[in-house]
Amino acid sequence: MSSKHGNSSTTKPAAAGPAPPSIDRLTPVLERFRVQASLFHSGPLCGHQSFEAVPGRAFMHVLRRGELEVVHHGEQGLQRLHLSQPTLLLFPRAAHHEFFNPPVDGSDFTCATLDFDGGARNPIVQSLPDFIALPLNEIEGLEPALDLLFAESDQNRCGSRLLTNRLFEVVLIQVLRWIIDHPAQAQVSQGLMMGLSDPRLARSLVALHRAPHEEWSLERMAGIAGMSRSAFAAAFKSSTGTTPAAYLLDWKLSVASSMLRSGRSVKQAALDLGFADAPTLSRAFRRRTGSSPREWLAGIFASA
Rank of each mutant, 00 (worst) to 15 (best):
A184T: 03
A202H: 06
V29L: 07
L136M: 05
S38D: 11
P55F: 08
H48C: 07
A256G: 04
T113C: 06
R261C: 14
Q174T: 01
F131A: 09
L163R: 08
F275D: 07
P123V: 02
L249H: 12
G223H: 13
G274F: 06
V71Y: 02
L172H: 05
F40L: 07
T113H: 04
D108V: 15
A58K: 00
F285E: 12
T10I: 08
T242D: 04
F131I: 10
S204W: 05
S291I: 12
Y247M: 11
R64S: 10
A231N: 15
G56D: 01
L192G: 01
V62G: 03
G17S: 06
L260N: 13
L149R: 14
A278C: 07
D154F: 13
S107C: 06
H96L: 11
L205H: 06
Q185N: 06
P293N: 00
E219T: 13
T289E: 14
Q185E: 07
R288K: 11
P18K: 14
E295Q: 10
V175I: 04
P28L: 00
A231V: 15
L172D: 01
S204T: 01
V188I: 09
A284N: 15
F275W: 11
C111F: 02
A231W: 14
C111D: 12
P279K: 14
S265C: 03
G195Q: 03
S2A: 09
R288S: 08
S257C: 14
G223W: 03
A151V: 08
L163V: 08
L83D: 04
P123G: 11
F99D: 02
A222K: 11
L205Q: 01
